[in-house]
C-alpha cells in the first residue's frame, strides 16, 4: 500500500521532508519510526490525515503520516 510520510523540524536532518513509500499491510506508525531511526522518546506529535494518532496504529492505503519531535512555542 502507498503511504506518504512527512517529517518536521530536526527529524528532517539526514532524512527527508516528504516521501512516498510502498509498505506492507499491517505496518504500524511505530514500525516506520523505527525504520527511519527516530528515537521514540524524541517524538512529540504523530498525525495521520491531520488527526492525532499513536505508535500502535496500523496505516491504511493513501494515508499521510506526519511525525514531529516535541515542539512548542506560542
Amino acid at each position: 500500500m502507498k503511504v506518504t510520510i512527512k517529517l518536521f523540524a530536526f527529524f528532517r536532518e539526514s532524512r527527508f521532508k516528504i516521501e512516498n513509500r510502498d509498505l506492507e499491510k499491517g505496518t504500524t506508525v511505530g514500525n516506520i519510526v523505527d525504520v527511519l531511526g527516530i528515537d521514540r522518546k524524541e517524538i512529540g506529535v504523530l498525525m495521520i490525515n491531520s488527526r492525532h494518532t499513536t505508535l500502535e496504529t496500523e496505516l491504511s492505503e493513501n494515508d499521510i503520516l506526519a511525525i514531529f519531535p516535541v515542539i512548542g512555542g506560542g
Binding site: A9, F10, P69, V70, I71, G72, G73, G74
Partner: peptide, 11 residues
C-alpha cells in the same frame, strides 16, 4: 531544543 533552533515559528 526545538524552540532554540527554530523559534516559535516551528509551529
Amino acid at each position: 531544543a526545538g524552540l532554540g533552533q527554530f523559534g516559535t515559528n516551528v509551529l
